[in-house]
Design a binder for these strands. Sequence first.
RNA 1: GGAGAGAUGGCCGAGUAGGUCGAAGGCGCUCGCCUGCUAAGCGAGUAUACUGGGAAACCGGUAUCGAGGGUUCGAAUCCCUCUCUCUCCGCCA
Length: 425
Amino acid sequence: MLDIRYIRENLHDVELRLKSRGAGVELSGFHALDARRRDLLQEAETLKALRNRVSDEISLVRDKSLEQDRIAEMRTVSQRIKVLDEELRTLDEEVRSFLLTVPNLPSPDAPLGVSEVDNQEIRRWGDIPALEFVPKPHWEIGENLGILDFECGAKITGARFTLYRGAGARLERALINFMLDLHTTRHNYIEILPPFMVNRESMTATGQLPKFSADLFHLEGVDYFLIPTAEVPVTNIHRSEILSGKELPIAYTAYTPCFRSEAGSYGKDTRGLIRQHQFNKVELVKFVRPSDSDIELERLLDNAEEVLRLLELPYRVVDLCTGDIGFSACRTFDIEVWLPGQNCFREISSCSNFGDFQARRASIRFRDEEKSKPEFVHTLNGSGLAVGRTLVAILENCQKADGSVTVPEVLRPYMGGLETISSIS
RNA sequence: GGAGAGAUGGCCGAGUAGGUCGAAGGCGCUCGCCUGCUAAGCGAGUAUACUGGGAAACCGGUAUCGAGGGUUCGAAUCCCUCUCUCUCCGCCA
């Protein structure tokens, strides 16, 4: 959510910056609404001040029968207040629901552009492996080894669900543990295991609602949603809190499954693990001082990249342009891992700075000094990493001509020492 | 699922025959005094949001005692709805 006063005072600038992300938001209606609201508020509060004063005076008089005139007068005043309050409630609701649909302002540092073709690659790491055979896509590798069963996932549930078996299941679990261990012991994140369902308020705070309900799974019977990312429950840990400046920065990491309806992506990435309704992810979330959020984003990004470096998987980092940045973010870097089976880079992590956008929706503030006024924190998050896609990258990058897959060295302790996944394992 | 109890400021905790209650008291915290050090002691201060004025310091108004409605000139206190927490029973990993 944007600062209503900032919009009020920088109407034109806000419109321009929203336009740069391709969001045509009309602010003139909002301006009128806001002005009307403040007029009514003034009137209502003046009347309330009068009522409070007179009521206090009445309370001092023993014999209320002497006060019938003023009581009657205040009855009229109260009726007027009621009407004004009613109207204000409506206006407040209109203002709020409008603000909830306005995306964040992109950072001035983000490259200008209209779509992903304008994103800028800023670095690459690792050598693309030179294989002396035609690399297979991971779904063929996984099926041949018997460790991924797409048919069975479809039978049990439906399209975009997959059953992992044997070494495949263990590899996924090894990756989760490896990532969590790395972030907690080397990068100083606190491990969180949150609920996998959240309420409407939490979804609104991080920005999934009200606009993107179609992307979510909603439960029947209770107003809960399956989380599309751990960002939602973990960011909401500090909803409606005033943190002490001494606690900042706060860094959490969490493994959760993620559930996405993938509405509107019919026919896209239908084969394999790339686009599932349920996938595992280890997430990184930070709460930081506004002055630190740029540098903290660099750190978070580096923490996510470290996973790929240790796994020895080649990747590149992309700076998302204004037109491609998500609704709540002001700056985003994607990490894309190399997939030889598909001969392309695929997103495996998205690391974003949200500025105070989520903090304002969620009312997450901090007090820098004991006596200083509370201000909004900045929130950041990024995948560290998407586990299913990491498994995909391992299968495709570490495949051998005979169809077996070499387990990256750092994962072997998590795999009971297993060095190679072959059909007999 | 059945029965009951509860929700007050950073924390603990008063306050229900409606008014002087943004709210006693204690703890904590901040500043000052005192003290050889520590502890104790003394004094002052210690919520947030919106809104009006002001360059600002700041001053004024309104709201907030789980949330939302209602009754009333006036609600932490009365009424209704909802949410959450706890206890007992049932069921259950």
